[in-house]
Design a protein around this nucleic acid. Sequence first.
DNA 1: GTAGGGTTACGT
DNA 2: ACGTAACCCTAC
Length: 288
Amino acid sequence: MGAPKQKWTSEEEEALRRGVLKHGAGKWRTIQKDPEFSPVLSSRSNIDLKDKWRNLSFSASGLGSRDKIRVPRIKVPSSSPSPSPQLLLLPAPDNVVEASAPEDIAKSPEDDKTHIPKFAMILEALAELKEPNGSDVTTIYNFIEQRHEVQPNFRRLLCAKLRRLIGAKKVEKIEKSYKLTDAYAKKMLAPMKDPSQKKDPAKPSKASKNLGLFAAASPALDAAQAAAMKVADAEAKAHIANEHMMEAERIFKMAEETESLLTLATELYDRCSRGEVLTVLQAAHREF
DNA sequence: GTAGGGTTACGT
DNA sequence: ACGTAACCCTAC
């Protein structure tokens, strides 16, 4: 029944970019109705434009790695060479990055020691929040955000993750809130006296008697829980400390990059003002 | 009409 | 398991 997702074509994307350049971000209806773009964007609604722009903004802001600053790439449409200076001021999302990414730092991209699966974070949050009627997304998000460094779009991911956990019968949804299922909560808190843990993902155990699971927790459960919390806490602290070091490192590197960019820009400007013709490639490789 | 949270489909 | 693009829902 559903429409199989209408992927944006590069023409549509380009029209959107130009539309934003012309009318500004937020004027989605105006852009959509503009005769210059309406032929291309006819099958897109104003909110489609908005959503697409949001996606572009996200992917252009280089989450997780460097530059929070969006660097608009100057793309001359080849037919009309009119690169207005506004281009440099517009917060237009664009395919940044380009070439020249000297990874001279001896840091492996995947750091297994500090990698905590998203699912684990969510389960940990639910286990420790232990709200009888479940916790809503915001509560869960806040909890995780305090404990772990999360990416800016984590909130968005959280919903998808929770759904998967529901599918895996580890979490159940009550109204707008989420909580661990009876079966899974027990499994988490159970001591390892049972080596033959059943991994049956299809737990038919209905959530009929899960009320008061935590309220009626036995001393043994409390102890196990406290121990688990201590471990989790220590891990979280180590994780945070590591994150801070990495962040400092990242900022330092960013400062270096910014400085060299500034130098490059100054040189470029100097040369251009003397009438020299340079290509971006030359500039990037300092071949001038 | 727009912004932003939420959901679903899909690719890796 | 995870991230993301496209789509949906709702408050303002």
